[in-house]
């Protein structure tokens, strides 16, 4: 048992060594944070250092050239084009995900079926991306080759869109759920139909959240390589005189594919190409996040929050 002591200033004063465990723990967790910081920094610095020669000597040439076997000429124009097209196809499918979220959150009754669907969607978000490549290979490459032209950027875009779909449904669903009930009741109380309530109150209030989800989706779509690999993105290709639509259905590549292909070449001299392509990809992802932050801020300001 503790005995009661008379209190003097000394008994209340912190003593050295009193909290040794606390100090050790603090050092441990701050070094964990430090290590995490180091990882972020090291990835950034390493990539830029490796890419330095290319970025300084032939930046525009690198951005504007297709991949080739010649180190001095090889670039990422085809990759940029492929990535932008894939992102565009993914964006075109966003309404499907947002619509599904609106249905699940606003219309569907709370039955076992809708709950099963919610759980399934949540779990599909955790399925490894390469599995979506298999889907793309079977359905979009082989099944719908009349539409997609086989191993094409359309097939890749659709497969990535399916991959991103659960992310969109989940984040949009969360944003919709976060819309306060009084807001809905207020609108219903004034004689608005369900659709009017959704369109004029629920969707605008959920817009920042939905936007975040779509940006996450685009960033994910830009960075994914595994499904493209299975669908058959190639290292480089020649287009000849194909017009735009023929190119959509022809051979394709994407930025992450460029990076993977350059990185896997045994000669270390190609590493700079992979790093430079990584810098381009990181900047693209960063820009998209930035746009989202700005747009979000504008919307939130308009909503007066």
């Amino acid at each position: 048992m503790h005995e009661r002591q008379t209190v003097s200033l000394d008994t209340l004063r912190a003593r050295r060594g009193d909290d040794a465990a606390g100090h050790v723990f603090f050092v441990l967790i701050t070094s964990a944070v430090g290590l995490a910081f180091f990882m972020v920094g090291a990835v950034g610095v390493d990539v830029v250092v490796e890419a330095w020669d290319i970025l300084t000597e032939r930046l525009w040439d690198f951005l504007g050239s297709p991949s080739s076997a010649d180190e001095a000429k090889s670039g990422v124009s085809q990759g940029i084009r492929g990535s932008i097209l894939i992102a565009a196809i993914v964006i075109l499918t966003f309404p499907v995900g947002i619509g599904a979220a609106v249905y699940l959150e606003e219309y569907a009754d709370d039955t076992w079926l809708s709950r099963l669907i919610q759980v399934t969607v949540r779990n599909l978000a955790g399925v490894p991306s390469i599995v979506y490549g298999l889907l793309g290979l079977a359905v979009f490459v082989k099944g719908l080759d009349g539409l997609t032209g086989g191993r094409s950027v359309i097939a890749a875009g659709l497969a990535v869109a399916v991959l991103v779909l659960p992310v969109i449904i989940i984040t949009a669903g969360e944003a919709l759920r976060a819309v306060p009930t009084p807001l809905r009741e207020g609108a219903y109380g004034l004689g608005a139909t369900q659709w009017e309530v959704i369109r004029t109150q629920v969707l605008p209030a959920a817009l920042p959240g939905i936007l975040t989800g779509t940006v996450l989706g685009i960033a994910r779509a830009l960075g994914e390589a595994a499904p493209l690999l299975v669908i058959g993105a190639v290292g480089f290709y020649t287009t000849g005189n194909q017009d735009f639509f023929e190119q959509l259905r022809g051979a394709f590549t994407a930025l992450p594919m460029n990076i993977a292909n350059y990185a896997r070449l045994p000669a270390e001299t190609w590493r700079g190409h992979a790093a430079a392509a990584s810098v381009v990809l990181l900047i693209l992802v960063f820009l998209i996040n930035l746009v989202a932050i700005v747009v979000r801020a504008r919307i939130s300001k308009r909503l007066g929050r």
Binding site: P180, P182, L183, E185, G186, A187, G189, L190, Q201, P204, A205, L303, G304, R305
Partner: peptide, 12 residues
């Protein structure tokens, strides 16, 4: 029409 317990003006 209805007026609710907590004021619920729209964010407009």
């Amino acid at each position: 029409g209805m007026v609710f317990q907590k004021p619920n003006p729209f964010p407009k």
